[in-house]
Design a protein around this nucleic acid. Structure first.
Lengths: 159, 159
DNA sequence: TATATTTATGTAGTCAACTACATAAATGAT
DNA sequence: ATCATTTATGTAGTTGACTACATAAATATA
């Protein structure tokens, strides 16, 4: 049975992106469970970011990883609850809450890194020969400048 | 501020796909609202499919568009409620429910088609020069054969 | 024919993202 | 110094996908 979203050409773009992302996310969850690790897909972005930056506020994380701040709050709250992040009120600016990696996080990091390296190797294999990372950058940039809605309405008016 | 998911290379793949898909979906909703059309992003896949196939069951739609059947039930129920689909119990097999486009759907189709054509033109512009549709096909195929979890665990064992 | 299996649909609950709104602290302007 | 604006965080509610389980009809098998 041929996939219909594929038949739709560029119109099927969004649905196909979402389908792939969802499938990877679900399979990622399953993977961590199978490996007996109590972390979730996407946490690695925060792990990696805080490893590099040491200490960041909610909004800073939100800006750097491109998720809305409520999503970051939910995500990091889970990581705090799981014992991987420490949350401290900022001295200079009492609105801010600064997040750092806990000792548990530092301890587990080598094991996580091993898994992430394997995951990355798997993805590299799956996307081999496609230039998709470069394509995503370009597409992100273009949709960043002018969204889908604006583009469509512009085209509608020029018809 | 440089995007951190991009810095992560292939590891940021899933998150970036999800982010783009979510942004397109949200902007699509906004667009339909702005145009005063009472339809949702993704409905066009069902509209187009039923225009081509006339009458299909829930499972057939699910198979063709690659969404899980509960998602199709939710999606098509909304379309029925909005008056765009007719649902009929199948005579030969009373388990099946057959979905067709309503008169309202047929009537509105030319207007929808105009919008979808504009949307597609916008996407084509945004992805120009990237070969992303071809890339997605290849990636879907590869992850279809062997998922992210399986790939990662295989890599872990070969380290 | 009776029973077991498969298939089609439906329901319940989860999840990760989003927007919109609320509040409190810091900053800027008159 | 007061008041307005901006910024940081938090909460509530929505969304569209998913899995897991439930039920009923059809089909296959003993």
């Amino acid at each position: 049975m041929k996939d219909f979203a594929q038949e739709l050409g560029c119109l099927g773009f969004t649905m196909r992106l979402k389908r792939i992302a969802d499938a990877l996310m679900h399979d990622g969850k399953k993977m961590y469970k199978q490996l007996g690790l109590d972390i979730e897909p996407n946490w690695y972005v925060v792990f990696r970011l805080l490893k590099q930056q040491n200490e960041l506020s909610v909004t800073e994380i939100s800006d750097r990883i491109g998720l809305a701040h409520p999503s970051v709050i939910t995500l990091t709250n889970k990581m705090v609850k799981a014992g991987y992040l420490i949350s401290n009120q900022c001295d200079q600016d009492s609105r801010k809450r600064l997040l750092t990696l806990s000792d548990k996080a530092q301890e587990m990091m080598p094991e996580f890194e091993r898994v992430w390296a394997a995951g990355e190797a798997g993805v590299i294999e799956a996307v081999r020969g496609t230039e998709i990372m470069k394509a995503l950058s370009l597409i992100e940039e273009r949709f960043g400048e002018k969204g889908f809605r604006e583009r469509t309405i512009e085209k509608l008016n020029n018809q």
